[in-house]
Design a binder for these strands. Structure first.
Lengths: 301, 301
DNA sequence: CCAATGCGGTGCAAAAAATGCACCACTTGG
DNA sequence: CCAAGTGGTGCATTTTTTGCACCGCATTGG
């Protein structure tokens, strides 16, 4: 949509931090860019950039303008999606920000199931930790977020929530595998592998350990839950993950057991969107499917 | 905002029903207008007008586009309001659709009170019946609606609600004025003046009368409650209105008495906005003031 | 301390886009 | 069957936008 070109340029300038660099990025002359910005500010009635030596940066008014642009863009693409729907095309795009736990089993199955019915719909899956996921929604970069234990709940509208207890994952021959429920102290007493601090699982572990004046002291700390899941195969230690990211393996080489709720309350896996936003058709439908799937998953567990 | 010019033209064409007439309205050539529309449709990816002989009219896709434009416009003016607020100007505009009952006493006082603190804020007061008021919100023509007994509540978000019993209004020397509460049958047995069918007061009266197999048969039927209020001074008949639109007059020439709740349940006076919409600063603040005023009014009564 | 560099902004001419005018093809109602 | 209405189009003209060459200024590094 050509009429939003000025906003695209504003966004580029905000990103680049300098008009000249933004001009290069957008394949345009610095002078032309400069004049468009100035003209916009005239028309808008206020400056939107702070001119400092060495470049420019958005002022609060500019932040509002940029937000307006993103909201407009989002609404426009929603409208285009609905129009495409009218003409029976059923195309569209869903972008979702999610925690790592959803990557191996849950999301692939749900996306495939959705695409089986709507082959014209494409997906972006953005792996984000719990705080990033919410920023993702706020900037309209993702339509949906499916995250474990989100941080700030402002502008985050909960669509569905299911509890997920932190589980211990380990080889079947690990001593703790014999119990059906594991105490936190047993975890801390044995060698363990843990995710790094920005993740919900680690946050819950740290919090619970501190309450018992213990500390989580992992022999391997990583940002990758896939790493954790596979590491326990190579050294007989324990790892942590929530059940939706786990599955009993055929040869029963890896097992998982919940940590006792006395020690560590279950966290929440939350499907959410930006508050008040009307989602594109495809995203709204996919959100409904996810809700149903999460409910079924919870009842099956 | 120049970048929305094409949308303004689209709106004009939709309103005029013909490109040539719209072109005149917008002081532009039909050819230029025609090409802008065609270019937009190209870019947008779908036709938004149905071309019939004798003119054009919006198709469903066009309705969506027009709605997008209005939403964008509303959001933009909200942003401009917030920016003005940032620079300390405190200006803005509030548009409110309301029932007639609010016109004589309640709204003038509240608007004046608001403007005493924020002289830069201007107001539009649009008198609308209960169904029009909601359309007004849906088309972003008004920010707020304050109506008695709204019809459809879809897309209508209730901000505040107070009950309002239908009252009989009459001269002090009318026989019914001696009672403190009036039965519906007494109203129907005496000559009465009533509002026409689209109004909430009449709707409640009709409904209650029909339940008792009676009918409302006014000697004067009017769209104007002001007319009703003044008519009872000239002929000794009764009229109807809700208390917020009434006030005891100094010389006690006109009095009002509630109709018994056994016969006619109290209706609702509802302050609302469009569902999910973020209101401009001034409107949001005014809505808060109205909420408070309504609460105080209810407690005082 | 001064030249070099990078910044935003501006005058002016060239390029691009939008517009107005004249006109076409078509439908409709008297 | 024609007059009056409609949307659409080719072409010259006007308006807007852009690119180029600069300016003044601040920061930086030798």
């Amino acid at each position: 949509m050509k009429h939003l070109q000025t906003f695209r340029l504003i966004e580029a300038v905000a990103r680049a931090g300098s008009m000249r660099r933004a001009a290069e990025d957008m394949n345009i002359t610095a002078s032309a860019l400069n004049r468009r910005i100035n003209r916009f500010e005239d028309e808008f009635g206020a400056e939107i950039f702070e001119r400092g030596s060495g470049g420019v940066r958005l002022n609060p008014a500019g932040e509002l303008v940029l937000h307006h642009y993103r909201a407009t863009l989002s609404d426009l693409s929603r409208v285009q999606g609905q129009v495409a729907d009218l003409s029976g095309e059923r195309r569209g795009h869903v972008s979702i920000a999610c925690s790592q736990a959803l990557l191996p089993y849950f999301l692939p199955r749900e996306i495939a199931r959705y695409r089986a019915e709507h082959p014209g719909v494409t997906f972006s899956v953005n792996v984000r930790d719990r705080s990033q996921a919410e920023q993702e929604l706020a900037s309209y970069s993702s339509d949906l977020a499916l995250v474990f234990e989100p941080v700030y709940l402002v502008d985050f509208e909960v669509v569905h929530v299911i509890p997920q207890a932190v589980n211990v994952v380990m080889r079947a021959d690990h001593p703790l595998a014999r119990k059906s429920e594991i105490r936190l102290r047993d975890c801390l007493d044995t060698s363990h592998v843990a995710p790094s601090a920005q993740y919900g699982v680690r946050h819950l572990l740290d919090f619970a350990a501190r309450r018992g004046t213990r500390r989580v002291s992992p022999v391997v700390e990583t940002e990758s839950f896939e790493m954790i899941r596979h590491y326990v195969l190579h050294e007989n230690v324990i790892g942590f993950q929530i059940p939706i990211g786990l599955r009993a393996i055929d040869d029963r080489s890896v097992v998982y057991r919940p940590i006792s709720e006395r020690d560590l309350p279950a966290g929440n896996l939350i499907l959410g969107q930006m508050r008040g936003r009307t989602l594109p058709v495809a995203s709204a439908r996919f959100a409904m499917q996810l809700s149903t799937a999460l409910r079924d998953y919870e009842q099956a567990a």
